[in-house]
Design a protein around this nucleic acid. Structure first.
Length: 666
DNA sequence: GTGCCTCTCATATAGACAGCATGTC
DNA sequence: CTATATGAGAGGCAC
């Protein structure tokens, strides 16, 4: 079990060598997976934590054949949003006494003993690193390492200390990875380094980088951010954050590993992600904004994760992690608080409401507990109970039970005695959404309203706690508020009285507007511009919306709310594809996605009926519709072809007049 | 009046997992 | 642990 999808595929690649000795390996994550029953055929399953949780919730037949569970990056236990998942899986394994060996791994943990105590595991520690690490602080032109060495950093002539550090690393054949506290600072720092880094490159490196830069531009739609990235890359520098699309990030990581890109300026995405080591790591900002708190110093644990990226196995004799300071006092502070400090203890976050209600439901739905006492007994095996004592969150557990009972997901036979999950509860546990989200959705759908616009459902989806929300700018508040006021009839929920929650609804509305633009086929570039986000963010919001809309559709079906089930299904398809209502009939055809559907539509084919009336040569003339696609279309609409038509379609010698190059997409 | 510099004030702020059923361009 | 870097706009000054 690993925390990221990218790590899962990285592990799959590593373990593939075992396939040669006949070991069968499979990877399973939300976006890439085999059918659950199939998994029993394999010797080794690599999964994300959440996927593993989800798999266990379906009680697959192969659970009792598990002999070893490996939990990678076990310090994630302390993450408020994702730790409880991992904790619950391990708690279940312990509670069921399956006799499974548990192997938990982490490079940055201070209370390892406590965790191994909870797991009933032996603690094995090691200081070994593939490449030794040297930690130091930069201050006014020199680096003070904690091993005593003080080193002057040669001036690069740019007058920029960060450039000095980068150029110094590059001159000796290394690379540098810079961690920053915000996206903007990653982008601007990369820009700052363009000139100095570019000067260090050979002619052949420059030309190779121009190619890479070109390929990054062609990776997706052209936006300002992409152009900035391409420009930086052509100089051997890149920035890296979640506003970039996945392919862009991958391209940068790969080009960095192949040493073409000399310097990456990144937000913490890269610290926890796939393996991208660099000879030198510079922690340029050790503070980060947190909503409601302001700027906070990052945890030592996070510093250690970033520092741990220093040193490429096989290439570097030593890795350097350097924290950037602006004054002597700051330097001393950093040495004390980070370099010489032990990572914080990992504290269980299972006791907090959102994750607890979800895990209480799962435990009952899986049949691990069948009474209030049983639920408490189950959580008695948790790390939370081990650490804080069961009494500390007993009342929270019971509150969750009450919430779930009231929401109709659990029911108690005799009051206080038998507890079981209702059909609804079981479905919610399987759909893997926050029970609170399910409650919000069900309350809205029980209004039994029909004829609602897409925006109503989008706003509902955005109103659930499972949906991430856009940040609302000060100057947008007024227009969002007035929209809300004059369109209150569209709402499927009450706008809360309380100030903070009211503001939250504005974020939800703004997020719903983003999704509305998406399904109205607004070009990516203008969405990005309008909402001041990156392309990568669009996909993140769309992914989440798909997720929650599917759950809403399933719930509508389960409850027999027919007036919502159909609109939700249609909306789901629109969100999945980013299409207007009018393309729905065409998109239902296999082989037709949003681009080809739009092409067919513009050519005058707006329904399956229209297509049935079309001749083969008519279809062949439509841009982006090739011989194979024509074949696919005809097979599906039950059109019949003459022998000549078949052969002309199959040989690809149609009367094709336009090619992809003649037409922009969208 | 114009151009340039400095000061003030408003503004925005990291990341990414999951269901289900099959293929985009 | 309710901050701070950034950038736009206002204001000041020399010409």
């Amino acid at each position: 079990m690993v925390p990221l999808r990218a790590l899962a595929s990285e592990k799959l690649d590593e373990f593939k060598r075992l396939a040669r000795i006949g070991i069968k390996i499979v990877m399973s994550s939300g976006d890439y997976g085999s059918l659950d029953p199939e998994l029993g055929k394999y010797d080794l399953i690599i999964a994300t934590n959440e996927k593993a949780d989800s798999l266990f919730r379906h009680s697959p037949p192969w659970v009792d054949r598990l002999s070893l569970v490996v939990a990678d990056e076990i310090h994630l236990l302390g993450d408020p949003s994702r730790g409880p998942t991992l904790e619950s899986i391990l708690t279940r394994i312990k509670y069921l006494k399956l006799g499974v060996q548990i192997l938990a791994l982490s490079a940055t943990i201070s209370n390892a003993e406590e965790i191994s105590g909870w797991l009933g595991a032996d603690l094995v520690t090691s200081d070994w690193r593939p490449v030794p690490l040297k930690e130091g602080v930069f201050c006014r032109g020199s680096v003070t390492f904690i091993d005593g060495e003080v080193r002057q950093v040669p001036r690069s002539g740019s007058g920029d200390p960060v450039a000095d550090l980068a150029v110094d690393a590059i001159k000796s054949g290394g690379q540098m990875l810079v961690f920053t506290g915000s996206r903007n600072s990653a982008v601007s720092l990369a820009k700052r380094l363009e000139g100095p880094v570019h000067r260090e490159l050979s002619a052949s490196e420059r030309s190779r980088l121009r190619q890479i830069s070109e390929s990054i531009l062609s990776l997706g739609e052209r936006t300002k951010l992409t152009e900035k990235l391409a420009r930086s890359v052509s100089c051997g520098v890149a920035f890296h954050h979640a506003g970039l699309t996945y392919p862009q990030r991958k391209a940068i990581e790969d080009s960095f590993r192949s040493s073409h890109i000399k310097c990456i300026c990144a937000t913490p995405t890269l610290a926890a992600g796939v393996n991208t080591p660099a000879r030198r790591v510079l922690i340029y900002e050790y503070r980060r904004f947190e909503p409601g708190v302001g700027r906070v110093n990052i945890p030592v644990l996070e510093y250690k994760q970033m520092a741990g990226r220093a040193g490429r196995p096989k290439y570097d004799k030593i890795g350097e992690a350097i924290v950037f300071s602006r004054s002597e006092e700051e330097k001393d502070f950093l040495i004390e608080q980070y370099l010489l400090a032990k990572p914080e203890k990992v504290w269980s976050k299972l006791g907090v409401a959102p994750s607890l209600r979800s895990q209480v439901l799962a435990a009952v739905a899986m049949g691990l507990a069948s009474s209030r006492a049983g639920v408490i007994d189950f959580f008695g095996e948790s790390f939370c109970a081990y650490q804080y004592g069961l009494d500390s969150f007993k009342s929270s557990i019971l509150e969750s039970v009450s919430f779930l009972t009231k929401a109709g997901m659990l029911k108690e036979g005799k009051p206080g005695v038998v507890l079981e999950a209702t059909a609804l509860g079981k479905r919610v546990a399987e759909l893997y959404i926050d029970p609170k989200s399910a409650e919000v959705i069900l309350r809205a759908l029980s209004l039994r309203r029909s004829g609602l616009p897409a925006l109503s459902y989008l706003m509902l989806a955005c109103h659930t706690p499972d949906m991430p929300k856009l940040y609302v700018r000060g100057k947008e508040v007024e227009s969002l508020e007035s929209y809300l006021e004059s369109n209150s009839d569209l709402l499927l929920f009450e706008v809360p009285e309380e100030e903070f929650e009211r503001e939250m609804v504005l974020s939800e509305l703004k997020t719903a507007f983003l999704l509305e633009e998406w399904i109205n086929e607004t070009p990516e570039e203008s969405i990005v511009e309008k909402f001041d986000i990156g392309s990568g963010d669009i996909y993140a919001y769309v992914e989440s919306a798909k997720w929650i809309l599917n759950a809403a559709h399933e719930l509508a079906r389960l409850m027999g709310y027919r007036e919502s089930a159909d609109p939700l299904k249609r909306l789901l398809i629109r969100v999945e594809n980013g299409i207007r209502e009018e393309l729905l009939p065409l998109i239902s055809l296999r082989g037709i996605g949003r681009v080809r559907a739009r092409s067919l539509y513009s050519a005058g084919y707006r329904s399956i009926e229209d297509l049935k009336r079309a001749s083969v040569s008519d279809l062949r003339r439509i841009p982006l519709i090739g011989p194979e696609t024509v074949k696919l279309i005809l097979e599906q609409i039950g059109g019949t072809l003459t022998k000549e038509e078949w052969s002309s379609v199959a040989s690809g010698k149609g009367s094709r007049q336009l090619s992809i190059d003649d037409y922009g997409t969208r």
